[in-house]
């Protein structure tokens, strides 16, 4: 199992690119929703870590977060997790409802689910365009709870059997509305090799 997951530096670069391409597009969508607020995007972070270490990557297992999960199915299969601290989620709700709501009521939850949906879909559009293949996205589902509980549930439900997990995490932040968060991409099953193959090929052209 371990052997399959070994990645070299060229593959890491390709995976970083996978984070870059898509999220550039996704942050434009988010910026439009926030009335053209400038969004700062960080260099994607590629890590191969044990399941136990994953929650530390998003601020610790007990940190309250909102996470929108969906699965992308196409030539390669992977998970998309749009995750942000609870406070940022509340700030998004406040910004998009123009101050009418600032809580996780049913409208508030819909707002977050929809933002996650748009960000993930923009990401997949960019990826589809670049690799010339279509991706289908499962309907987004939302949970607001401890980061560890949410990520653990995702790994359990997805029956992740590997002991280490590869994640491409791209973080973003805004100043005016004080929103920060990240999009996490987790290649699933054969997804990793396929993504590297497809993108490796495309990038070398």
């Amino acid at each position: 199992m371990k052997k399959d997951l070994e990645i070299n530096s060229e593959e890491i670069d390709i995976l970083k690119e996978l984070g870059n391409i898509g999220l550039g597009n996704a942050t434009i969508s988010l910026s439009e929703m926030l009335k053209d607020e400038k969004i700062k995007m960080l260099v994607p972070d590629v890590s191969l870590i044990s399941l136990a270490e994953v929650p530390d990557l998003v601020g610790g297992p007990e940190k309250p977060v909102a996470a929108v999960f969906s699965r992308a199915i196409g030539e390669a299969s992977f998970f998309l997790i749009f995750l942000m601290p609870e406070k940022s989620a509340l700030n998004i709700i406040k910004a998009l409802t123009e101050g009418i709501r600032e809580e996780f009521c049913s409208l508030g939850r819909s707002v977050i689910r929809e933002v996650g949906n748009i960000v993930s879909a923009s990401y997949l559009n960019a990826l589809s365009f670049l690799t010339d293949s279509a991706y289908r996205q499962t309907p987004p589902i939302l949970a607001i709870d401890m980061a560890g509980a949410i990520l653990g549930t995702i790994f359990a439900e997805a029956s992740i059997i590997e002991d280490s997990i590869l994640m491409v995490k791209t973080s973003f932040s805004t100043e005016v509305n004080d929103i920060e968060g990240c999009l996490i991409i987790v290649p699933h099953g054969e997804g990793l090799k396929k993504i590297v193959d497809i993108l490796g090929l495309e990038l070398k052209k």
Partner: peptide
């Protein structure tokens, strides 16, 4: 517990993980 309302892999199952 069951944090997500639906099964995340899209399948329908009476028993949550």
């Amino acid at each position: 517990s069951q944090l997500f309302k639906y099964n995340i892999t899209g399948g329908v199952s009476n028993e949550s993980v």
